[in-house]
C-alpha cells in the first residue's frame, strides 16, 4: 500500500443509543484507492459505525472526509462531497423501476455528461440489471437488489463507497460476483469501506482491516497480517483456514 493521503479520517468516534454506547472511541482511516474492511460479530457496532459516518446517526468525535470536517454535514451534503452508502436494508425505491432507481442515484448530477456515462457503465457492469431495466425494484431477487443498491450508490460518482454487509443472505455465486465488482471498483479509483460477516472473502480483497467487538476496535492492521492473526483465524476464519495457514 502506498503512503497516499487518507480520504476518510475518523478520530475517537462514539455513537450512543440513549445511554448505551454502541460505538466507543473508534479511530480509523481509509486511504485513497484502498479497500478497508470492518469485521466483527453481530452487534459489534459495524452498521452503527457506517450510519454515523454517513450522518444518519448523530455521533461524537471527529470525521474528516477529503480534508473537510463533517461535524454539521447532512446526509445529502455528504453525498455531494463524494460519500455513498449501500445500507444493510438497501433502502431501494421498491415501487419504482430499476432504471428510475438508478437515475435517482445520480440525482445531483442530472443533466451532465457524467450522468449518462455512469448510467451506461452501470448497465455494462451489472448486465442483470440491464435485463430488468423496466421491472419494479420490489420484484427483484435478493442478489439483484444488492446489485441495484450498489449501482444506485455508484451513480452519484462517489470517491468513497461504504458497503454494509453486501453478501448478507446471498448465494455464494452472487457473493463472488459482487466481490469481483468491488475489486474492479477499487481498480477504477473508488475507495471502499466494507463491512462484512464473510471475513474470509473480505480479507482476501481488502488492503487493511479493523476488527470490532462490543463497539471497540480490538485489532487492526494490513489484511495480510489479519489473515495470519491467531485470534482472527480462530474466531472468524474457522478451523479450515487455520489448517490451511
Amino acid at each position: 500500500m502506498s503512503l497516499s493521503a487518507s480520504l476518510l479520517e475518523v478520530e475517537r468516534l462514539s455513537v450512543a443509543y440513549g445511554r448505551v454506547e454502541a460505538v466507543r472511541e473508534i479511530s480509523l482511516s481509509v486511504p485513497e484507492g484502498a479497500i478497508v474492511t470492518i469485521l466483527g460479530p453481530n452487534g459489534a457496532g459495524k452498521t452503527t459505525l457506517l450510519n454515523a459516518l454517513m450522518g444518519i446517526l448523530p455521533a461524537r468525535g471527529r470525521v474528516r472526509f477529503a480534508g473537510r470536517d463533517l461535524a454539521i454535514r447532512t446526509i445529502e451534503g455528504r453525498v455531494a462531497d463524494g460519500m455513498s452508502l449501500v445500507p444493510e436494508k438497501r433502502e431501494l425505491f421498491v415501487s419504482m423501476t430499476v432504471e428510475d432507481n438508478l437515475r435517482l442515484g445520480g440525482f445531483r448530477r442530472r443533466g451532465t455528461a457524467a450522468f449518462d456515462e455512469t448510467l451506461h457503465r452501470m448497465w455494462r457492469v451489472f448486465p442483470r440489471l440491464a435485463e430488468r431495466r423496466t421491472q419494479l425494484a420490489g420484484t427483484l431477487s435478493g442478489g439483484e437488489r444488492q446489485m441495484l443498491a450498489m449501482a444506485r450508490a455508484l451513480m452519484s460518482g462517489p470517491k468513497l463507497l461504504m458497503l454494509d454487509e453486501p453478501s448478507l443472505g446471498l448465494a455464494p455465486l452472487i457473493v463472488r460476483e459482487i466481490f469481483r465488482i468491488v475489486a474492479e471498483l477499487r481498480d477504477a479509483g473508488v475507495s471502499i469501506l466494507l463491512v462484512e460477516q464473510n471475513a474470509r472473502a473480505a480479507l482476501e480483497l481488502a488492503d487493511s482491516g479493523y476488527v470490532l467487538e462490543n463497539g471497540e476496535v480490538v485489532l487492526q492492521g494490513p489484511a495480510v497480517d489479519l489473515r495470519g492473526d491467531e485470534r482472527v483465524v480462530a474466531t472468524y476464519l474457522g478451523i479450515r483456514a487455520a489448517a490451511g495457514a
Partner: peptide, 12 residues
C-alpha cells in the same frame, strides 16, 4: 416511497 433512501442518493 423511502425517505432515507432518497437522502442517501442526495435528494434533500
Amino acid at each position: 416511497v423511502n425517505r432515507l433512501g432518497a437522502r442517501l442518493v442526495g435528494i434533500s
